[in-house]
Design a protein around this nucleic acid. Sequence first.
DNA 1: GGTTGTTTGAATCACTTGTTTGATGCGGTT
DNA 2: AACCGCATCAAACAAGTGATTCAAACAACC
Lengths: 232, 232
Amino acid sequence: MDDHGQVKGGDETRERVLLAAQKLFAERGFESVSLRNITTEALANVAAVNYHFGSKDGLIDEVIGHHMIPVMKERMRLLDEAENKYRIGLVPVEVILDAFMRPFLTVIQDGGEGRDLFCRFMGRCMSERGDRMPDEVMRSAQRVMKRITVMLSDVLPDVESEVLVWRLHFCFGAMAHTLIHEAGLKVLSKGQSGDPDFETTLQRMIDYCKGGLSAGGSVLTDRSGGQGEFLF
Amino acid sequence: MDDHGQVKGGDETRERVLLAAQKLFAERGFESVSLRNITTEALANVAAVNYHFGSKDGLIDEVIGHHMIPVMKERMRLLDEAENKYRIGLVPVEVILDAFMRPFLTVIQDGGEGRDLFCRFMGRCMSERGDRMPDEVMRSAQRVMKRITVMLSDVLPDVESEVLVWRLHFCFGAMAHTLIHEAGLKVLSKGQSGDPDFETTLQRMIDYCKGGLSAGGSVLTDRSGGQGEFLF
DNA sequence: GGTTGTTTGAATCACTTGTTTGATGCGGTT
DNA sequence: AACCGCATCAAACAAGTGATTCAAACAACC
C-alpha cells in the first residue's frame, strides 16, 4: 500500500495530479484553484483530470476520500483503544478529543511540510466541504460522530445533550480554523527558542476544547435529541 | 439613515449593489460570487461595480468596511462600558467575550433574515479575509484585539500569555465556524418547540469560550510575547 | 437655452474557466 | 504482421470572468 510500483506503469500521472491537487487545495481552498493550476503543478495535461476523475468535483471527492477515510479509521481505532483501556470507568474527555484530533498528525507518515499541508487540507475539508462529502466519507464520519457524542455525554452527564452538540460544533470550528491558519499563527507567535510543534498545538487545542466542553454553563432552554447529526 | 431619500437621486444603485454583494458573499463566500451574480441580484449593470468601487476587490473592501467598522466601534464602546462598571475589580471573562461577540447581534437593527445574513457575512470575513482587510478595519481591529488580550490576561493571570493567544485564536475559530453554519445547525438541532434564538446561541458560545479560555491547562513550553498580533 | 459633471447601459475587451475532441504513441495479445 | 485497450497530448469548445469603452440620459448650474 505504498503507492509505488504500479502494475501497468501508466497512471503515475494520476498520483501526481492527486498530490498537486491536495497541496493547492490546502494552500488556497477548493474554489480558488483551477484545473490548470493543478495540472501545471503536476506536470500533466489538463485533460488528465477529466480522464482520470471525470470532473473537477470527481477529483475533489477523490482527494477528500483519499485522506479522510484513513483519518476516520484511525479515529475509530483510537476510540476502540480508549474504551479498552478504560473498560472499568468512563473515557476521559481529553482522551476522546485526542482520538478525534491526533489522526491528523499520525495518518500522514511524512513530517514537516507534508504534515503541514495535510493539516491545512483537513481544515479546508471541515470548513469548506462539511456538507457534500463523498458518500463513503459521509457514512464513516457519521459513525465516528455518533460514537463520540455518546461517549462525551457519558463523561459529561451534567451537560444537556443539545448544549453538548453545540459545544462539539464549537470544537470543530476551533479545530478547522487552527488547522488552516496554524502556519500563519506560528509565524506570529514567534518565540525566540522555537515555534510550538504539532504536538504542543494539539495539546493546547485539547486543553481548550476540554475546558469548553465541560464548562459549567447555565443556559438550559428546551431539550431535544439531534445528537450526532452534524459531521464536520 | 434609512437608505431612501437620496439627495442627488443617483447612487441608490450603489446601495443596492452593496446590499446584494453582502447577501451573496454571506451565502456563498467571496471567491464564489461573480460580479454578474451581484449586479443581477441588484438589478444593476455590470459596469456599475467598476464605476462605483473601482474593482471587485474595491467592492469587497467597501462591503467589509461598511459592516466591520461599526462592529469594531461597538466592541470598543462595550469594553468601555465594562471597564466603567467593574472599575473596582477586574472585568469577568464572560463580559469581555460578550463585548466581543454581541455587536454581531446589535449593530444590525434588522432582526430575522437580515441579521442572519449579517452574521454569516461576519463569519466569512473572519475565516476567508482574516488577512487583507481594508486598512482602517485592520487598524481598529488591532486596537480591539490588543485591548481584549490585555484585559483577558488580567483576569486570567494563571494562563501563560502565549497560551492565551492561542486560546483566543481557538475562540475565533469557534465563532467564525458558528456564524457561517449557524443556519444549517439550527435546522439540524430541530427541537420541537423552537430553534435556539441568537441570544441563546450567543450565550452558549460565551459559556464555551469562557471554559476554554480559563481551562486548567498544563502545557507550558517557552514563553514569549506576541499578544494582540493576530486580528481575526 | 446651453454647458457641466455624474450616472447608467449595451456592447465588447482579453482572458480564464471546466470540459471535450481527435490524433498519437505505447505495451501486450492474437 | 495487425489489432487492441489504455494513457497522453495539443487544440479547441462554449460559457463565464473582471474590466473597459462610448454613447445616451440625467440633474444642476451659468
